[in-house]
């Protein structure tokens, strides 16, 4: 009987701890101080002729492209996390403005929360559907990479820096062993339109 009471006590503690903390703003999705201090521009740097910063306003003023695509996360492969029409600027255009230097091999992407990912320069230059989106289904969003047909860990959000490198840079999940190409295989495979 003592053990049953102890078990009940632990369970009640957990429930109170979980829902009590939520009520007091202990939810981990609360915005961190770092994200509040972020700059409203994206830095394009590295193996380029003309490194530059582009503000969100300048980004929105560039010729845009709309891409209809679904974002699938590795942990829920059959359920799109986000879907709809994304509007943004083809990444290729941003790179062409900077002038890609010969020898640039990969692109490292950095987010305001420290997250990173990567793409091959060649892939980006041959794919107009990869965009830096600033709008989803008519609503403004923080700049986010839209990479149709690839897993969500390539769709970096809160993009702050794009750095071209001449080595095999690997992002947060890619370094942890996730496939670098990140193509979605199987029934969830979807392209962009």
């Amino acid at each position: 009987m003592k053990k049953e009471l102890f078990a009940l006590f632990v369970l009640i503690l957990l429930i109170l701890g979980t829902y009590g903390l939520k009520g007091q703003g202990g939810n981990s999705s609360t915005q961190s101080p770092v994200s509040k201090q972020r700059a409203d521009f994206i830095e394009i740097t590295g193996f380029v002729e003309r490194p530059y910063n582009i503000t969100y306003e300048e980004l929105e003023a560039l010729p845009s492209k709309s891409v209809t695509a679904e974002l699938y996360c590795v942990d829920s492969p059959n359920l799109p996390r986000k879907s709809g029409t994304w509007i943004g600027v083809p990444l290729r255009v941003l790179l062409e403005r900077a002038g890609v230097k010969e020898g640039a091999y990969k692109i490292a992407f950095y987010a305001e929360d420290g997250y990173t990912t990567d793409l091959y320069v060649e892939d980006v230059m041959n794919n107009k559907s990869i965009i830096v989106a600033y709008e989803l289904n008519g609503k403004p969003i923080k700049p986010r990479l839209v990479v149709p047909g690839r897993w969500g860990y390539k769709w970096i959000k809160g993009l702050t820096k794009i750095r071209l490198v001449n080595y095999n840079f690997k992002g947060t999940w890619e370094s942890a062993g996730y496939p670098d190409e990140a193509y979605i295989e199987g029934p969830t495979q979807r392209g962009a339109s």
Partner: peptide, 18 residues
């Protein structure tokens, strides 16, 4: 040992459920 394990297992079960 018994009470420690019970507490830990309930914690594991709670995280799993959530």
């Amino acid at each position: 040992v018994e009470y420690g394990v019970i507490a830990f297992l309930i914690y594991v079960g709670w995280i799993t459920l959530n």
